[in-house]
Amino acid sequence: MKKCHITFQLNGRTCEVLVDPNQTLLSMLREDLSLTGTKYGCGEGDCGACTVLLDDEPVNSCLILAAQVDGHKLTTIEGLADGDKLHPLQTSFIDKGAIQCGFCTPGMILSAKALLDEEPNPCELDIRTAISGNLCRCTGYQKIVEAVKAVADDCQGEN
């Protein structure tokens, strides 16, 4: 197995890594880069705990080979806050009680971010659809939906 040398944008910075060809993106993030905010929940695309943004689109990092991100742009939960300033979605999740065990939270927030970047004023069905690949066993989703909506309402206010 020949190792692969890859270069990509990770949370706004250029990143070079030597990865195994049979390594998933999830494993590279967690094991090689110690970015453990991206979670393993199932490894088969069924739960969304491993969600990252690849070229700004939310995807399951357990279904991508690390080598495939060569030349691409990647955002993980660790890249969302701007210094000590949390992303509005993070603040909203905290304030609205959208977090319980927190294991789904990084993936949820990233899916929600991708939605709001595309559609700043989504309806409830848009929000529920956008997070429908992210399972949460704790919250029943309601407070997550409310948290996303609150950020959307805020952007509306700003416009």
């Binding site: 967690r30 979670k39 939960i77 660790e78 949390l86 993070q90 999740f93 977090i99």
Partner: peptide, 23 residues
């Protein structure tokens, strides 16, 4: 009250450490 959870910020930022995150 509706005080935010004491562990919400670490969970929202991906800093929270679960067992498999330890090494």
């Amino acid at each position: 009250s509706r005080a935010p959870r004491v562990d919400a910020a670490i969970k929202a930022t991906g800093k929270a450490q679960y067992a498999d995150d330890l090494s």
